[in-house]
């Protein structure tokens, strides 16, 4: 019995050590919803394919949305939701660090709506863009990213943002505020204005509806996003 216990402890220790600082081999997220044309890479080494609802993403997985398209992904760890709006590219990574899981989403360009659940003390969640690294513990808002600038519109919660190239340039953003950071690390914070609020509201519209106008001359079919 004593020998069995020693072997068990050795195995547990070995497994724990091997997992430390290595990518998680499990699925990180699932595609929950697709509108129009969305492509995915399930892992860093996989081929790009058409996305389907239920497809899982592992470390290095990628989501690419085309014009007028969107994808909603749900993180399997804590059911946080990310909506990848049209013309966006998002990569997702997850690593075990100590006893925690560090999830990182790399956004090359586009608009992402996020509702990140409150993270455990040992876990981490961050967005990485061409100009910033934003660490989140539990919050919701919208990220608008291009190659030179990142806009973070925060509805609620708190985000710690630092320049990707100069971490000494950083700021904490609170709910109801907007932060703009560029590649030089210049940071501006201001209150959300009406346009920002509308942008957040629009970004939440992920349900599709159809309108069919039947005239004596033909049928006009319109598909649109709504709440």
């Amino acid at each position: 019995m004593k020998i069995f216990l020693v072997i068990f402890l050795i195995v547990v220790f070995a497994l724990n050590t091997s997992a430390k600082n290595f990518p998680s081999s499990n699925q990180i997220a699932l595609i929950k919803k697709i509108v129009k044309e969305v492509h995915v890479k399930k892992t860093a080494d996989a081929q790009i394919e058409n996305a389907k609802v239920g497809v899982s993403l592992s470390d290095g997985g990628q989501v690419i949305t085309k014009s007028k398209s969107l994808a909603i992904i749900i993180l399997t760890k804590d059911k946080s939701l990310l909506t990848v709006r049209e013309n966006s590219i998002l990569n997702i990574y997850q690593r075990k660090e100590g006893r925690g899981l560090n999830t990182s989403t790399n956004i090359e360009k586009g608009v992402i709506t996020f509702k990140v659940e409150k993270q455990n003390v040992e876990d981490g969640f961050e967005f990485v863009t061409p100009s910033a690294v934003a660490s989140i513990r539990g919050t919701s808002g919208v990220l608008d990213v291009d190659s030179t600038e990142t806009d973070i519109l925060l509805e609620e919660g708190e985000v710690f943002v630092q320049s990707k190239f100069d971490p000494s340039k950083n700021a904490t953003l609170n709910g109801g505020k907007k932060l703009v950071i560029n590649v030089d690390g210049n940071i501006e914070i201001q209150d959300l204005d009406e346009n920002d609020k509308k942008k957040i509201d629009d970004a939440k519209k992920t349900n599709t509806k159809k309108l069919n106008i039947i005239t004596p001359y033909g049928i006009l079919e319109i598909e649109y996003l709504t709440n």
Partner: peptide
Amino acid sequence: KILNMLEANPNLIINYSFKQK
């Protein structure tokens, strides 16, 4: 209501087509 929304947010229209009779 739909027209109001689409007039203010034309980017919400994701697809449209006209099938002539």
